Simulated scan of single mutants.
Amino acid sequence: MKVVIVWSSPNENGLTASAKESFLSGLKKAGTEYEEVHLNKFKTEHCLACGNGWGTCRSEGRCIIKDDFESIYRKLMEADGIVFISAVYWHDVTEHMKAFIDRLRRCETGHNGFLAQKRCILIACAGGTGLGAVECLYNMEEALKHMGMRAYDRIPVIRYNRDYMLPALEQAGEVYVERLKDGFDMRY
């Protein structure tokens, strides 16, 4: 059993990093193999919308941009479960996460379908008032649904709920591994 955590925040000591560490602690307690992908440390360009909007992503299921996208995509294909964790900017995911998901969606929806039926956890971490967390989770899930992926849970973490959500995320990591192993399913 392997879980890949894809996360994005420029602040490696902030709320998003804390949420990632809490969830990761639960994965470790459950004894599962995991890999972290901190998108801010990878080179992933924005989609060029080549080929009149649909280039090789649609015809061949691959992107023409030579950066770290393909290696991350491969990790997701090989994973049993995927966790997406993002800081919230303007009620949406970070620019790094958005660029990655946009390209992923084009390859998956247009051609491949390698990630269809992958069971995911979505976590949005909002500082300030926290008002954008729920909208961010909605946007993340809509992108995943285009690819046929399913969200097991959508977890908002904000300054107000931080003290009780971080411990809950650890337990969520443990439960996630159990659910992946026992085949728990939720159909849309």
Rank of each mutant, 00 (worst) to 15 (best):
A116M: 06
I82N: 03
K43F: 00
V134T: 10
C50I: 15
E141T: 14
E95R: 11
T56M: 04
E45N: 14
Y73G: 03
W90H: 09
N52M: 12
F114L: 14
G61W: 02
K145D: 00
V134P: 04
G53T: 03
E35N: 14
A124H: 01
E135F: 02
M147G: 04
A30D: 01
K29N: 13
F84M: 09
N112R: 08
H111A: 07
E142A: 11
L104Q: 04
E135T: 10
K29D: 14
L115I: 07
H91M: 12
L122Q: 03
G55W: 06
C50L: 14
A99T: 05
K43R: 08
L144Y: 03
R106T: 02
E60S: 11
L76S: 05
W90D: 08
D67P: 07
H146Q: 10
H46L: 15
M147K: 01
R103E: 12
A30W: 01
E45T: 14
Y73L: 07
R74Q: 15
I123E: 01
F84S: 10
R106C: 03
V93A: 13
L104W: 04
R74N: 15
S59L: 02
S86N: 01
G53N: 03
H111W: 02
A87Y: 02
S86W: 00
N139H: 10
R119Q: 12
E95L: 08
A116F: 00
Q117N: 14
K66W: 06
Y138E: 15
I82L: 05
H146M: 13
T109L: 13
L122S: 04
C47I: 11
A124P: 01
T32C: 15
E108D: 09
E35F: 07
T129A: 12
K29Y: 02
E33H: 13
T56Y: 00
G81D: 01
Y89V: 02
E45Q: 14
H46F: 15
C63H: 04
E45H: 13
L115E: 06
D102Q: 07
E45C: 12
R150C: 11
R62Q: 05
G130Q: 10
R62E: 06
K75I: 08
C63T: 04
G51Q: 13
D80G: 13
T94F: 09
L137T: 07
G61H: 01
T32H: 09
A126F: 00
Q117R: 15
H91T: 09
A124Q: 01
H91E: 09
R58I: 03
G55Q: 04
C50N: 13
I101R: 10
M77A: 12
V83A: 02
E142N: 12
M147F: 00
C50M: 14
H96E: 09
A99R: 14
S71V: 03
K29I: 08
R119H: 09
L144T: 01
E142M: 12
A124R: 01
E141G: 12
T56P: 00
K66M: 13
S59T: 15
I85N: 01
G113I: 02
Y34I: 07
K145P: 00
R58G: 06
G113L: 03
K41D: 02
